[in-house]
Write a protein that binds this DNA or RNA. Structure first.
Length: 867
RNA sequence: GGGGGCGUGGCGGAAUUGGCAUACGCAGUGGACUUAAAAUCCACCUCCGAAAGGAUUCAGGGUUCGAGUCCCUGCGCCCCUACCA
């Protein structure tokens, strides 16, 4: 027996698998399809432990499903465009392409060293022109469908990355998702994809995603942010108080509180603001609020809450339900990009309005009263406004009785209430309002003022305006010779910038913005089904047969960004007639983080453990098994060197056990450590094993049962991704088998053919069970120790017999009043009646004559006697 | 503020439908082997107790024959999100 040498074994079998092409997909071989996918990495350096975890989980699923008889698509690629490559290029005086492709080579080597079963012939790199040309093609397809829009709006600008960002990429307290710099607001003309057209469907179809974590679905639902309510039109009064024909519309979820509107608010960025105050005494104060809001990145917080500021504009609007004149204010807490940018303030029913009213001395008339409110007696049924100001310490935003609300007084108010409906109906009849649904989701801003990305295929012509690049002119190739260290960008290349207008043929200018990298990752899972297609992004027949992805595995950080964008792309491509399914990922597994001393591993904190290092020291199999064992995949994993070494010990024990079972162990026997050639049991005080005596026969029986039980357990656990307990069960089987070998003499086993066959069968089972997790170790044992000539990874998953897994006898706990007082052993499958009798007999002494009131029998488990 | 999740030995964690709490591993302790150590093997290893026995899944209450699991209250922790009208 050779000693376990991971370095030699792993190199040898990786070469063998590659040469045999066992991971290369053979399409349409008659087996059912299974598509397992892990989120592809960004090539910013070598792989980190989070990648190792993500891809280990995916690899176990892939190998397990293959052994279960599926034709498994298990691809890998790189999300290769983006900022870090630009920054690194400037720092290292090289180019983004050099940096990116260098890291891809490094990561590819690391992935191979970890023994992942990817079909490398299908690798997709998003910065390859053969890939991104189809991203441009899809952009033009979306253009055709009316899903592309160029518009001017207040956008998020990262002053460090020198580019705009999508709403989803502004994180935390208004920071850039990539560099953490405070984002600024800028009014700019940019390219958008109309994801909002799919808002309702993106929300509704979350219900279809039964294989997604509730948490992720909730996060997406919150992000989409559907609110039901109404739009209300307020008529603007001129400066002299006369009526104009101009209206300002608000969105509200509480139309029932409309009678309590005592002031009207505009966002500082609202286009009307300037116009209202121009040349008036109010201009100065209002301008102050507007300016402060523009620099709101530096807003101070007071006691965790922002101080609200605002200013009166000197103008009024008319409340459509009661004709009341309402002062118009500008307030910094009103957001331009939610609703209409204008708000009807109802301070008695909204905490923020309440706070603002108190601060500026504005009235707070009550309109919806909570139960038991002292005002109920005074105001019940009162239609006109008699109380202008409540004495409350805070607003009441719950449901309640409507008062001081004209004809709607006495109705029940609240979100989506009868009162709300009645007010909407009244407004609709007047033509001053309508029921409305508002979404928080904004259109997806996809243009980036960066070089290292997919060029937006658009041309600006002085005569023809904005012209899409004709499909026949694709791809728009990204020039590779841009020198970022000299401050160059796409506009620096005349041959890129200047182009003949596709319509009129005159000199025109190319768009120099590139697309958000998230557009590249929004459809890569489709490309894997047909990665070399030169005529189309993908082939409908292939996507139909492989998608949706059966199992997608990746980090929770993509809960909104990537997963929402991909869902949108899928739906849009479906509507383009290119796909026939609604959702890209049927099942989603979000793996937890890898931590060290309770902190997330990160380069900046300097607390990283590099997978490469661990592989070098312990081997890929040990790293993989450790990652799977230490925590369930969706929980955070605390790194522990001791734990890693424990797993290493287990792999050695497993290795020796298989050899022992086959009679191949010799001096490396599990029990060779104590006295040469003698079972350690002797030293441990057990009688020396002489042959297959009664004790070893009993052990053999136990072992057979355990074999069937553990195969069942490991199968169930892998199906449910409980890899940690699957490994625990394998450890138990290993321990049971060691116990059996300890009490039975090797010579006697070798002399008994039935015994030898059983031992061999067990060894084969063990190797097949561990194969998805430690593929190299398993292959070495399978081919070298067991003498097989075909890869273990092409074998069938072991089967088991539930009947054999059941013990002949089971131990039944006898409880008295719910506490375990005794145990009896009965034949398994004993009938309930018998069990009851046996239990009562066994408990007679304990009961001391007390008559049982009730006896509960749980078959095969326990009997509870209630006295 | 809103939403989601969690709380089990010294540690990571198990308990699949309400049915014997603490599987498996780490750390620790003792033993065998060794001149010795490491490695290996064996045994012990929730707490109190000499033992018999008792207590124990953050705390308190409830439902139930029976609760780590379900319900209520409180405490603590984590994650997401946030002037969203």
């Amino acid at each position: 027996m050779q000693s376990l040498d991971p370095e030699r074994i792993e190199a040898e079998w990786q070469a063998y698998w590659e040469e045999q092409g066992i991971d290369t997909l053979v399409e349409d071989d008659g087996r059912p399809h299974y598509y397992t996918l892990e989120m592809f990495p960004y090539p910013s350096g070598d792989l980190h432990m989070g990648h190792a975890r993500n891809y280990t989980i995916g690899d176990v699923i892939s190998r397990y499903k293959r052994m279960c008889g599926y034709n498994v698509l298990h691809p890998m690629g790189w999300d290769a465009f983006g900022m870090p490559a630009e920054n690194a290029a400037i720092k290292n005086n090289s180019s983004p392409a050099e940096f990116t492709y260098g890291n891809i080579a490094t990561q590819r080597a690391s992935l191979k060293r970890l023994g992942f079963s990817y079909d490398w012939s299908r690798a997709v790199i998003t910065s390859d022109v053969d890939y991104y040309r189809w991203g441009q093609w899809i952009f033009l397809k979306f253009w055709e469908m009316g899903l592309v829009e160029r518009k001017s709006s207040a956008v998020n600008w990262c002053p460090s990355c020198l580019t705009v960002l999508a709403n989803e990429q502004v994180v935390g307290d208004g920071e850039c998702w990539r560099c953490g710099t405070k984002v600024q607001k800028k009014e700019l003309e940019q390219w958008y994809l109309k994801i909002t057209e799919y808002a309702q469907e993106l929300l509704d179809d979350l219900d279809q995603l039964t294989g997604w974590p509730e948490r992720v679905k909730q996060m997406q639902a919150n992000w989409i942010g559907r609110s039901v309510g109404a739009e209300v039109d307020f008529t603007l009064l001129a400066a002299d108080g006369t009526t104009t024909d101009q209206t300002v519309t608000v969105f509200t979820t509480r139309p029932d509180t409309l009678y309590g509107c005592s002031f009207f608010l505009l966002a500082p960025e609202h286009p009307l603001v300037k116009e209202l105050v121009a040349g008036t005494p109010y201009e100065k104060q209002v301008a102050k609020v507007v300016e402060a809001a523009a620099g709101s990145t530096s807003i101070e917080r007071q006691g965790g809450e922002r101080q609200k500021t605002g200013a009166f504009t000197g103008r009024y609007v008319i409340n459509p339900v009661n004709g009341g004149q309402v002062p118009v204010w500008v307030a910094d807490y009103v957001l331009m990009d939610y609703g209409t940018g204008a708000v009807m303030a109802v301070p008695s029913g909204d905490e923020r309005d309440f706070e603002f009213a108190r601060q500026y001395g504005l009235p707070i008339p009550p309109v919806v009263l909570p139960e038991n409110d002292p005002l109920l007696e005074e105001l019940a049924g009162v239609r006109d406004r008699v109380v202008e100001d409540v004495k409350w310490g805070q607003a009441y935003s719950g449901p309640g009785l409507m008062v001081q609300s004209g004809q709607h007084t006495g109705l029940w108010g609240g979100k989506d209430s009868e009162g709300a409906k009645a007010v909407i109906d009244g407004l609709a009849a007047m033509g001053k309002g309508r029921a409305s649904v508002n979404f928080r989701l904004r259109d997806w801003l996809i243009s980036r003022q960066r070089y290292w990305g997919n060029p937006i295929p658009v041309i600006y012509c002085e005569d023809c305006g904005i012209v899409p690049v004709p499909v026949s002119d694709l791809p728009v190739v990204l020039p590779m010779d841009i020198d970022l260290t000299r401050g160059e960008g796409l506009a620096s290349r005349q041959e890129f910038l200047h182009v003949d207008c596709p319509v009129c043929g005159r000199d025109a200018r190319r768009e120099t913005d590139t697309m958000d990298t998230f557009t590249c990752s929004s459809w890569y899972y489709l490309r894997y089904t047909d990665p070399h297609n030169a005529d189309a992004p993908f082939d409908r027949a292939k996507t139909d047969s492989w998608l949706p992805v059966d199992q997608y595995t990746g980090g929770i950080e993509h809960a909104i960004l990537h997963l929402l964008y991909s869902r949108f792309f899928t739906k849009a491509l479906r509507d383009a007639g290119l796909l026939d399914f609604d959702e890209p990922f049927a099942n989603l597994l979000t793996q937890g983080m890898v931590k060290l001393d309770g902190e997330t591993m990160s380069k900046s904190k300097g607390n990283v453990v590099a997978p490469e290092e661990v592989v070098g020291q312990y081997g890929a199999d040990v790293l993989r098994l450790y990652i799977l064992f230490m925590a369930p995949p969706d929980k955070d994993l605390e790194w522990s060197k001791e734990g890693l070494e424990g797993i290493q010990r287990f792999t050695v024990r497993f290795w020796r056990l298989v050899h022992d079972l086959l009679g191949l162990a010799g001096e490396d026997s599990l029990f060779a450590g104590t006295r040469a050639g003698q079972p350690a049991a002797e030293a441990g005080g057990l009688p020396a094993a002489e042959g297959l005596g009664a004790e070893s026969r009993a052990a053999a029986e136990r072992l057979l049962r355990e074999r069937h039980r553990v195969v069942g357990k490991v199968t169930d656990d892998i199906e449910r991704f409980n890899f940690n307990t699957a490994i625990a069960a394998l450890m138990e089987l290993t321990n049971t088998a060691s116990g059996y070998l300890r009490v039975s003499a090797a010579a006697a086993r070798a002399a008994d053919p039935a015994c030898q066959a059983a031992d061999r069968e067990l060894a084969e089972t063990l190797v097949r069970l561990i194969a998805p997790m430690t593929p190299h170790l398993a292959e070495e044992l399978w081919q070298k120790a067991l003498g097989k000539s075909r890869s273990v990874h092409l074998e069938d998953w072991p089967s088991y017999d539930a009947v054999l897994a059941r013990a002949d006898e089971v131990e039944i706990a006898i409880q008295v009043n719910g506490k375990v007082r005794a145990r009896i052993t009965v034949p398994s499958g004993a009938p309930e009646d018998g069990l009851r009798e046996a239990a009562l007999a066994a408990a007679a002494e304990l009961l001391a004559g007390a008559a049982p009131k009730k006896v509960i029998v749980v078959a095969g488990k326990l009997v509870n006697i209630v006295v």
